[in-house]
């Protein structure tokens, strides 16, 4: 069991707009080893959902761990989760801890 587990939250973001509307920084081999939300754009699916917040760190996307993923790979996983037509939502496991 990881230390982050007790404070992690699962947030389901419906694809309610044509964009997800978050900016992330971080990834493996950077100062911020897991992607952190730095912006939530108004009018995007994330903003419409109302539960994702700036400063949250993304641990998993649709059950896929972002641990050890470099920035571009993490960004690709999130982009593909938004693009896929298999699901009309994305599940984010996030934590406020950094």
């Amino acid at each position: 069991p990881g230390l982050l587990e007790p404070t992690s939250t699962l947030i389901r973001v419906p694809k309610s707009a044509s964009t997800l509307g978050i900016a992330i920084e971080g990834g493996a081999k950077t100062r911020q080893p897991l992607p952190r939300i730095v912006t939530i754009q108004r009018g995007g699916s994330a903003h419409n959902c109302g539960q994702l917040k700036v400063g949250q760190v993304i641990l998993e996307v649709n059950g896929i761990s972002l641990q050890g993923r470099e920035h571009r790979e993490a960004a690709r996983i999130i982009a593909e989760a938004f693009k896929t037509k298999e699901k009309d939502y994305i599940d984010f496991l996030v934590t406020e801890l950094n």
């Binding site: 978050i22 920084e25 081999k29 100062r31 920035h71 571009r72 960004a75 999130i78 982009a79 938004f82």
Partner: peptide
Amino acid sequence: REKRLTLPPSEITLL
């Protein structure tokens, strides 16, 4: 030797 200081900042991607 602070490991944290040697790691580069990350780029930012808008999704």
